[in-house]
Amino acid sequence: MRPERLKAIAIVFGLLAAAPLFLPNRYYVYIFNRGFANALAVIGLVILFGMGGQISLGHIAFFTLGAYTSAIFSVRLGWPSAAAVLAGVALASIWGAFLSVPAFKLSGPFLSICTVAFGEVVRLLTINLVSLTNGPYGFYGIPSLILFGRRIGSEKAWYFLLWSLLVFAILAAARLKRSYIGRALAAIREDETAAEVMGINVRAMKTLAFVCAAFCAGLAGALYAHMSGFLSPESFTGEQSFSLFSMTVVGGQESVLGGVAAGVALTLLPELMRFLQEYYIMIFSLIVLLIVLLPLESMMERAKMWMAGLAREGGKVPWGRCSK
């Protein structure tokens, strides 16, 4: 990575670290926290979909599993909240491994429908297992997180916790992408048969990608449960799965930083612009459609050439002459 780019990223992260000191009130900090939780889940999707090419359209299910498991363990079983969070993450990851089994055989629309079905089943379970989840009325009274003897109660405390977890996750995902594992995932995305013939254990890699994705979403969900103190099945619908998916696409699929930026920005946007709240999914879908259909790459290329042409000749360059 070029040093000036590194510097720019460092500045952005430094500013973000100090942001709660400037934000006008607790509500804004809270939305940032939600954005960070979503970004964490998006990192998982960047690994699964961006790097590995496997579509998960029921991804909120892992978030739900993490959240409800952690809530149930801490409230119904009286576990310490940190242990309950770990249980939530573990359960989500196990289900991630299960969901990778259909991916051994299926791809494209077939796999994506399978993940939709998984998401629906989890949603129906949260509504119908009333004795565990309190069903449509929602799960109340989840205790706040206690970490190393410290209670994470205020929005600011959550902000710093989530922000530092996010930085860790970004580093880990970036390392994964540049490692032999990341390359193997890319190989599977590009050509599964060739990957297999080149000695890559495709099944193991798919399972790994699904577990990573489920882990991230499960962790985000488990933390969200203790952060908000209340869970409702209504906040974990298929549309939420789609919105996580759109964040991944908007961020450029393969880019970890892009995914995080899109995750935070697309969570803040509908919260800040009240009038968007009804229609934000509609707007997201339109944005995704445009990103997929517009020839963005070649547009960027042309823009770059044009800029280069300007710099070189110091004057007007007609469009036609930019492409050599």
Binding site: R175, L176, Y180, I181, A184, A186, A187, E190, T193, A194
Partner: peptide, 27 residues
């Protein structure tokens, strides 16, 4: 059947895949 969108170097390093031994945690 190359991995078309990946770089030339990445293509070769994918060939080396099974010889890596670091494991997820170390990565």
């Amino acid at each position: 059947r190359l991995f078309k969108r990946l770089t030339v170097l990445d293509n070769v390093m994918i060939g080396q895949h099974h010889r890596f031994g670091a494991g997820l945690a170390r990565v």
